[in-house]
Amino acid sequence: MSAHNHLRCILPPSLLDKLARSDDADLRAAALDAMALDNRFRIARAESASRIGGRRAAPITFARIGGQVNRTIYDKHHDTSQTLGKVVRAEGQPAADDVAVTEGYDGLGETYDYYWSTFQRDSINGQGQSLLGCVHFGTDYPNAFWDGHAMFFGDGDGRFLTRTTAGIDVIGHELTHGVTQYEANLVYSGQSGALNESISDVFGIQVKQRALGLNSETSDWLIGADIVGPELAPALRSMKDPGQANPHDDQPADMDGYVDGGDVHTNSGIPNRAFYLVASKLGGNAWDAAGPIWYATLRDNRLNSTATFQEFARLTLANAQQTYGRQSAQAEAVSGAWDTVKVPL
């Protein structure tokens, strides 16, 4: 089969239709292939156009096949300005002699692959946005963040956190903040802020599980296990046992422990555990059913930017029922999980 279809160009549908009825088998196959591709673009455009309200994603204006990551890694050389810095590795270039650059490049690739292969989502904005990662941010900076355009990774202070690019779940977490920004755009305070954080952990752990070949049973469900220093070992957060990841972990496991005015990373333990409970109840890979339910909820136009845990929970159940059936094991798992963490449906 030819690697290049010469009919993947602008041809009127009537002509494609005529070619599809040709006696020439190769020409017929090429025309059918082009028509299928054209149909896919039409669906994507229609879906995008129906989702503009309240979402930041712009309607698709240029057809894009997708599935091709475009990464650029920058070296901040310990500067703390939120500018990109010097390009040290662009897409397709060979590995540099700097482990943070390699980890950042590979981690962004794994995260892109997760979103593309699982949801056919083409990057952060769904339209092939370039992934920009800035390493060596600040001096001994014990943090990583998404600033609305790019991801920044510190080298760690050695006490609390170490090199943050070492955690593929961390990279998945930060990139997912971008996805959330282009979808529900959850306000970063209160329960919507905790949901924003939880969604980043939910997809960050799936990126790690998929990259390492782990399923719901074999995963440790720990966040940040590869980037903690001695004071926060063995991990930053546990989705399975919120509050038990390290001696300082402040996450509650259910609504009885909800902290009014607490940090968004604190109360995120509650929806984190709900996701773990769904995935572990269903077994297999977290991205077989639990992940798609959460992803559909994140993209659901009914999810407001100021959503509460209860509103989010109800939408996860609605999406599970819509996709798998009202009495399905998936819907029952979702219902049971929110009941366990004491979020009433």
Partner: peptide
């Protein structure tokens, strides 16, 4: 100092 990726850890003082 509060917040950051490790914001579930109480503040550093």
């Amino acid at each position: 100092r509060a917040g950051g990726f490790a914001g579930n850890i109480p503040p550093l003082a």
